[in-house]
Design a protein around this nucleic acid. Structure first.
Lengths: 174, 174
DNA sequence: CGACTATACATGCGCTGTATACATGGAGCG
DNA sequence: CGCTCCATGTATACAGCGCATGTATAGTCG
């Protein structure tokens, strides 16, 4: 329920309506995938259903009607609980790269060619992100750093996989 | 449709039934989250609906009835298309760590404490994975490498975030 | 009328949990 | 020894929830 928790966090400042939450989410988490409106309202419904938020009324000041949502006591408790948690560090290895290498090896053995193409795309993207870092807000720089570190991790893994993929291929045949 | 493509890859060897696909998936992608049976059959239905697989009959040899699925010509085409693709390298920065830091900063400013706890958990998990590497199959070693590289990327980012989180906090207030 | 603000709804996929059905093998018992 | 019974393994189906996308609707402002 990660999206719900982010919305709870935004609501912990003050009551807000759905449209505002989407805008703030995209602003506070620059670089993240923009929230779709449909998702915001669906998530707000769930939060209300679970008692974490409540509708405190509708406001209409020079525009369409706005449904104002506020965090409840239970919501604050849930938010604190979530913040006290940590992410389970890679409990499973869900890697799209690894999956594609395995499937490519199964289906025809072109994993090496795939890895080389992927590496080139990664390098291009890293140059883009590095350029963007120079002209971003602190939050944008932090977000770009996160992406860059993980793209670099992919690159290191790709190098390893290129060295070992013949071994993996042998494994698949067995 | 990533799961569907993996199933197509497994079916490209020979026709198989659902139960077998689940077992092979978990074996070929060690460390990955085991596929739930319900997901396998639901995905097979979608593949059949889209013309990528077809039911080639039922077999019953000393056990319950088995529905055998085979890849079609369209399925092979789709599989080749997917294998010719590359992953979009981090088009968005969807980071649970970053989201939690931002929300923590919003809700009370305990991001630093969170980052320290997360770092400790990461280090523990990396020791586990490193130990597991010593006694694994080549595929398991590759999977563990992937996780280790990305946990290390998280660690580097955590260090950066710890240095800069006061800056981010100022940003949030503005 | 077009652009922006604001919400609602339908749909599809991922994922979990549960129910069902059949077969095999072993424990316990007369 | 032969029988029931039950646990286990094999195999599928279905209900339900959350995430995500796309589309429709409706009001307001310039």
């Amino acid at each position: 329920m990660s999206i719900g928790h982010v919305l709870l966090g935004l609501l912990s400042e003050r009551p807000k309506h759905g449209y505002e939450l989407k805008k703030e989410h995209d602003q506070r988490l620059p670089g993240a995938k923009p929230l779709a409106y449909g998702q915001v309202y669906a998530t707000l419904q769930r939060l209300e259903r679970d008692g974490f938020t409540e509708v405190t009324g509708t406001a209409q000041e020079g525009g369409p009607e706005r449904t104002v949502h506020a965090i409840t006591e239970a919501g604050r408790t849930e938010l604190d609980r979530w913040l006290a948690e940590i992410e389970a560090p890679a409990p499973y290895v869900a890697s799209p790269l690894f999956a594609r290498v395995v499937v490519a090896t199964l289906a025809g053995g072109t994993a090496e060619e795939y890895l080389l193409r992927q590496r080139a795309a990664h390098l291009t993207r890293m140059r883009e992100l590095t350029a963007r870092k120079a002209s971003g807000s602190p939050a944008q720089v932090l977000a770009a750093d996160y992406a860059l570190q993980h793209l670099d991790a992919d690159l290191r893994w790709i190098e390893t996989a290129l060295e070992r993929h013949t071994v993996l291929k042998g494994e698949t045949d067995a």
